[in-house]
């Protein structure tokens, strides 16, 4: 127990303390900036600085083992947009992204709604749909390469049913309209990769939707039921509109994953015959680190960055605004 201090003394000392505390607080605020400064500098250099450096490399003539940083203008970009392989990459990325997102959204919402029906053994089912997310894309690629291998795998059973499928070895493009240097259309081989990618990532959208569904108070559903709404109407009129913003988040997260995908495709199929499963991530890796075309590789990486930024920057800004 501290001895009681006379009131006059106490007020005097507390005044002195508060001045000291204010000083202390300023020192702490300064200290907080010291805490975070290394991270800010690291991000400044290793993210923004390096992006700028890559951007510069993409404008140079550095297309051999020896660095040549002479300015080349947009030569590398012009080369890429006229390049058969890069045109194929853009087509493949487009269809891969669209099908992948649709698969993840549809399967995710469906499974989340199923799991939300007070299912017995829900935890077990949830784990079955979630566990592929803990795997590496490389592992997924290796497994599905085996499963969908046309010489073995699922195909033998499909063959018995009269379906002769080549999966990722097919070079078919449907419908295959001439466009630039390539056949434009859906490359059949991409579908095999979409199946593998969706198998791995559906769990993400299930988790997101399930969290959204669980946040809807039971009273709202009860009230709708009292008013004579059918279960279907409850979903259409109440629940789906509430989970719509989740769909936006899932689309953005999945789009950025698919626009920069590399490891799954590299492990599962590689570029494929006629580059039917090639994507910018694989092209960048091979041309830079196997072919020493550094400037071309940098240009591909900058194009990848821009396509990802189109989705991510508005998303980040809107979540910033939503918070404050």
């Amino acid at each position: 127990m501290e001895p009681k201090i006379l009131p006059s003394l106490q007020s005097g000392s507390s005044l002195a303390v508060s001045a000291k505390k204010r000083k202390r607080r300023n020192a702490d605020q300064l200290m907080s900036i010291v805490f975070i400064l290394p991270s800010i500098l690291a991000i400044g250099v290793f993210v923004y600085g390096f992006i700028a450096w890559s951007g510069y490399v993409s404008l140079t003539n550095w297309n051999s083992l020896v660095p040549d940083l002479s300015f080349a203008g947009f030569k590398n970009y012009l080369f890429l947009f006229k390049d058969f392989r890069f045109q194929a990459d853009l087509r493949n990325t487009l269809f891969f992204t669209v099908f992948f997102i649709i698969a993840v959204l549809v399967m995710g919402l469906m499974l989340a709604v199923f799991l939300d029906q007070k299912i017995r053994g829900e935890g077990l089912f949830r784990n079955i749909f979630f566990f592929p997310m803990a795997l590496s894309f490389v592992v997924t690629g290796v497994i599905w390469q085996w499963l969908l291998n046309p010489a073995t795998g699922v195909n033998l059973y499909l063959k018995k049913l009269g379906l002769d499928s080549l999966w990722y070895t097919s070079v078919k493009i449907i419908p295959g309209v001439e466009w630039g240097k390539i056949q434009f259309g859906v490359p059949v081989a991409v579908i095999a990769v979409v199946i593998a990618a969706a198998w791995q990532m559906t769990g993400f959208s299930v988790a997101m939707y399930l969290a959204g569904l669980r946040a809807i108070p039971e009273e709202i559903r009860e009230a709708a039921r009292m008013d004579g709404a059918s279960e279907l109407q409850i979903y259409r009129k109440i629940i789906f509109p509430i989970v719509a913003p989740i769909t936006v988040s899932v689309i953005i997260i999945m789009a950025h994953i698919s626009l920069k995908i590399f490891d799954l495709i590299y492990a599962m199929t590689g570029p494929g015959a006629n580059f039917v499963t090639d994507v910018p991530g694989v092209y960048m890796f091979e041309t830079t680190f196997r072919g020493n075309y550094y400037a071309n590789g940098a240009a591909i990486s900058i194009i990848m960055l821009v396509t990802v930024a189109v989705f991510i920057v508005p998303y980040l800004i809107s979540s910033r605004k939503g918070e404050s």
């Binding site: 993210v47 390096f50 890559s54 920069k260 830079t288």
Partner: peptide
């Protein structure tokens, strides 16, 4: 600053790989 830091988790790492 936080938002600027966050951007770093979405970039394709290919775009920093050559300087890195």
């Amino acid at each position: 600053i936080f938002t600027a830091i966050l951007f770093g988790m979405f970039i394709p790492y290919q775009s920093i790989l050559i300087p890195l």
